[in-house]
Simulated scan of single mutants.
Amino acid sequence: MNKAFFGLLIFLFSGITYAQTNIRPGIRLGFNSANISNTTLDNKIGPNAAIFVDFRFSRHYSLQPEIMYSRQGGKSNIRTNEDLDIDYLSFGVVNKFFVAPNQGLHLILGPSLDFDFENNLINVINETNDSDVTPLDLSFFFGIGYEFDFGLVLEARYKQGLLDIDLFDEDFESDFYRGEGNTLNNVFQFGVAYKFDLR
């Protein structure tokens, strides 16, 4: 019993020590291919950028909180109408599961809370409540990536919005909304990241 207890303590402390010596901040730049379900909008290409901190707890797992700017929405296929641009500030929790120890291939899984900061900031300044979409979205994402020893990371993700963004503007709905089902964000994200080694 005592041996098992001390073995558990050694395991826990070694994990904490490993995590403390493997905390690496980083930046990521990339692009989105975004669309909104149940609309006639086409895929829209937009930028994304993030800052993050990677906590490597073991050879198989790391936790990466991040703050991301992500331009989403959809592209109008009607010449007389403008595209729908939604600029989100996203707070995500990325879980990375490495396929094999000491190898860079990993799977990505996590949630994010997305704040439509541009429309909300304009509304606060103008003291109005006039926006085409809801101010918040809750998303779930998954993907795959590869991490090189020197800090370069390549990633591809799919991000699915879980809340109806409520395209309530009448002019917008008459042109693009199909009239049935929820309007949800759907985004493919591709990015190149670099993790800084502060040791």
Rank of each mutant, 00 (worst) to 15 (best):
D85E: 09
L12M: 15
D85T: 05
P25G: 06
L63Y: 12
G73F: 03
G7N: 13
T80S: 10
P25E: 05
T80F: 03
Y18A: 12
I27D: 07
Y18S: 13
N81W: 06
Y61N: 07
R24C: 07
I23F: 07
M68A: 14
D54S: 15
E66Y: 15
F57T: 14
L8N: 15
I78G: 02
I51N: 05
S76W: 02
A49S: 12
A19W: 07
Y69L: 13
F97G: 13
K75D: 03
N43D: 02
Y61E: 04
I51H: 12
P25D: 11
R71Y: 01
G26I: 09
N38H: 11
G73D: 04
I86L: 09
R56N: 14
Y61R: 11
Y88C: 02
T39R: 07
Q72W: 02
L63T: 07
L84M: 08
N32A: 00
R71H: 02
I67L: 15
H60N: 12
N22W: 00
G92S: 13
R56S: 13
N22M: 11
D42S: 10
S58M: 12
N22H: 15
R79T: 05
H60R: 13
R79A: 08
F31C: 03
A4Q: 14
I67D: 05
T39K: 09
F91R: 09
P47A: 07
G74Q: 06
G7V: 08
